[in-house]
Amino acid sequence: MPNRLPADERRAQLVGAALELAEGGGVGAVTVRAVAEKAGVSLGVVHYCFDSKEALVVAMANAVVGELAGAMHAAFDVPEDTQQTGGVDCLRSMLHTGLRSMWSAIESTPGLQTLTYEITAYSLRQRTDGSPASGDIAVEQYRLMDEQARLFLDTCAERCDVEWSLPTSTLARLSLSVLDGVVLRWLVDRDGDAATTELGVVADIIATRAVERS
């Protein structure tokens, strides 16, 4: 009989098992039975934690987004006394640091990154087939990504005492759209040097939308 774990720990365990299955065989490999066997628990335990496969896929998407967000927020761990005093140059530096941290996490987990696109495609395909609940997976995935991007951009601006010339929501959406393309292209050609250069250009472009606070 499996050890009893707090609900949050059990859910995290099951999400980890589902991600391992999906990295090897795609979203199609994630079934309640397969996750239960991978985690060494009963089917009832999985059903208790997740009322449907769709709920489990949402949790998987959130876990991946959270991991990337954590990597980007490593930019905030720079000691205060080593940061520039402020202004657009400070902001540009923080953007470069954040994107480099994020890229390090992406480059070390290509299977996981491929999975994020597969989760999106799975969700949209299910919605086309008449399952709106499954279609909401992609909506929730991008909602969380937008939220994390806005937090990152707002924190950078606050740290460097600048403000954005566009609504942060618009800038976050645009930035994520560009980053999506960079990551997808890298998954195709695995040209890390090109991706690193492109991310630097992205950081510089984003920085042009910041102005000194009056």
Rank of each mutant, 00 (worst) to 15 (best):
Y48C: 04
D193K: 05
R185G: 03
D161P: 00
S177E: 13
G70R: 07
A63W: 03
A149G: 02
A39T: 15
R185P: 05
A195L: 06
A63H: 10
P2G: 06
G28F: 04
H96R: 13
D204F: 06
P79H: 01
L56H: 06
S131T: 15
A63E: 07
G24C: 04
G200Q: 07
G98D: 05
T109A: 13
I106D: 11
V15K: 04
T168Y: 13
S101L: 11
G44I: 15
A22Q: 07
S134P: 01
A29Q: 03
L199K: 04
R185T: 04
L56E: 00
D8M: 08
R33D: 00
V41W: 01
G86Y: 04
L19R: 13
C49P: 09
V35A: 01
Y142A: 05
S165R: 15
G181A: 02
F50G: 04
D129G: 12
E23A: 03
D191E: 08
T120Y: 02
L174S: 08
S104P: 00
E140H: 12
P110V: 00
L56Y: 03
P132T: 14
T109K: 15
M145P: 01
A39H: 11
V178R: 01
Q113W: 12
A22Y: 09
V64D: 00
M94K: 00
A133N: 06
E9A: 14
A172G: 07
D191W: 04
D189E: 12
E54A: 14
E158G: 02
E147I: 03
L91Y: 14
V58R: 08
E118D: 05
A63G: 11
R209T: 12
